[in-house]
């Protein structure tokens, strides 16, 4: 059972204006692993996620999703395996109702109507949003929007989840629920975030990205205790460890 791995080899990406966003990034996530991707603003976290999903095309390097090398040919297959949860749920809830939104992915997979509604119900139930099905997206609270945007990805039954700042904009209670949810998932997870406490709770392993390069890759607690590393990468240790430090 190690087929849902994610491997990135020597990945480079430059913005069209020439700024280098990724400078030779290599990493590998094993099946079912939850990995935190941390780094200061502009470190390249979001770009890395976008490049993995084939949403921006890298200059050089390879992305391997469970044995399929990312290319125009495999793009459809790879996107079926990946679930990409964007930072702002508004971006992800582009359909008029919650149901339509969660059904968007399964419908694109060509599933039957019956299968689609089953998937939608299951996905909404798993994030505790079953009662929201008929609501229009703009009538949801922040926590509900986040839950539905996750359901919209889960309904595609992805193997690997890519998340960009999943806890941003959530109140403490919703954030706690999210952490519980993320911890229960069995998917391979790559979570880009500034919320180091979330990483501490959910991800045994952490990758630190600094100016487009991997500055560290290892046990979360070890990395968060390495003040020199955090300082160098413009990061602060998680709140719950700051007390320990002083």
């Amino acid at each position: 059972m190690s087929h849902h791995f994610l491997e990135v080899n020597d990945l480079y990406y430059s913005y069209p204006d020439g700024t280098e966003a990724l400078k030779g990034v290599s990493l590998r996530l094993e099946h079912g692993e939850a990995v935190g991707l941390v780094g200061a603003n502009g470190a390249g976290k979001s770009t890395l996620l976008l490049a993995v999903a084939g949403l921006v095309f890298s200059g050089s390097g390879t992305v391997n999703i469970g044995g399929a090398i990312l290319s125009k040919k495999t793009l459809g297959e790879i996107r079926r395996r990946l679930g990409f949860i964007f930072q702002d749920p508004e971006d992800q809830l582009f359909m008029p109702t919650v149901f339509d939104d969660v059904a968007f992915g399964p419908l694109n997979q060509g599933l039957s109507a019956g299968e689609v509604s089953f998937r939608v119900e299951e996905a909404l139930r798993s994030v505790g949003a079953g009662h929201l099905s008929d609501r229009p997206a703009y009538r949801l609270s922040g926590g509900e929007k986040r839950a539905v945007s996750i359901a919209a990805v889960l309904s595609m039954l992805p193997d690997i989840l890519l998340m960009d700042e999943p806890s941003s904009g959530l109140d403490p209670r919703n954030r706690r629920m999210l952490i519980g949810l993320l911890g229960d998932f069995t998917h391979t997870r790559l979570i880009a975030t500034h919320d180091l406490d979330l990483v501490l709770d959910v991800c045994p392993r952490t990758i630190v990205l600094h100016r487009g390069e991997i500055a560290a890759d290892g046990h979360t607690e070890e990395i968060f205790r390495d003040e020199g590393l955090l300082e160098r990468c413009s990061l602060e240790p998680p709140l719950c460890m700051q007390g320990v430090r002083s």
């Binding site: 976008l50 999903a53 949403l55 459809g76 996107r79 079926r80 990946l82 679930g83 990409f84 964007f86 702002d88 508004e90 971006d91 992800q92 582009f94 359909m95 149901f99 339509d100 059904a103 968007f104 992915g105 419908l107 694109n108 997979q109 109507a113 689609v116 509604s117 939608v120 919209a152 990805v153 595609m156």
Partner: peptide, 21 residues
């Protein structure tokens, strides 16, 4: 935002046709 929405659509298999359930 529009560019990000387009990404979000592509990531969920958008192929130019919006299907409704």
């Amino acid at each position: 935002r529009a560019a990000r929405v387009h990404w979000a659509m592509l990531a969920r298999g958008f192929d130019g046709e919006v299907r409704t359930a």
